[in-house]
């Protein structure tokens, strides 16, 4: 995953090449790539702004709310995300989680006989952002 958070500008920008997702089971990875049609739509991305500007000093840990657009599978949806930013020696540690509905992104939930993947899926990210 690649991303940039600018505290001065209050902007947040993340993207991930979905072909790099690893779940630990190769077959499941292939199935996921097929469902997400990663050859045609390789990226999931979020571009947004920090809702409130704030200062972060070394050692600080603060909750953060971001609003913006999450894009996946060729569809853009406005979302609001809550998470936390921690100012560590290496940079900024970011944690955030939100829930999407697959139908909002025109993704057909995989199904087998009577079993079907749930429409609501939780997305969690945890990243360390290095200073530029």
């Amino acid at each position: 995953m690649n991303g940039r958070v600018s505290l001065e500008e209050g902007t947040v920008d993340f993207y991930i090449d979905l072909e790099t997702l690893k779940t630990g089971i190769g077959k499941r990875d292939k199935d996921m790539r097929k469902v997400l049609e990663t050859k045609e739509f390789p990226f999931a991305e979020f571009v947004g702004t920090l809702e409130t500007g704030f200062e972060l000093l070394p050692g600080d840990s603060k909750p953060v709310r971001v609003s913006g657009t999450f894009s996946m599978h060729g569809n853009d949806r406005p979302i609001e995300v809550e998470g936390s930013l921690v100012y560590v020696e290496a940079g900024l540690e970011l944690e955030a989680a939100w829930t999407i509905r697959l139908e909002d992104y025109d993704i057909e939930p995989p199904r087998l006989l009577i079993m079907k993947v749930d429409q609501e899926q939780k997305i969690s990210i945890r990243a360390t952002l290095l200073p530029e």
Partner: peptide
């Protein structure tokens, strides 16, 4: 320009399955 340029991690698209 404000966004990061989107770059593929692996351009080599292996045919699977």
């Amino acid at each position: 320009v404000a966004q990061l340029p989107r770059e593929r991690s692996n351009d080599r698209q292996v045919v699977e399955e």
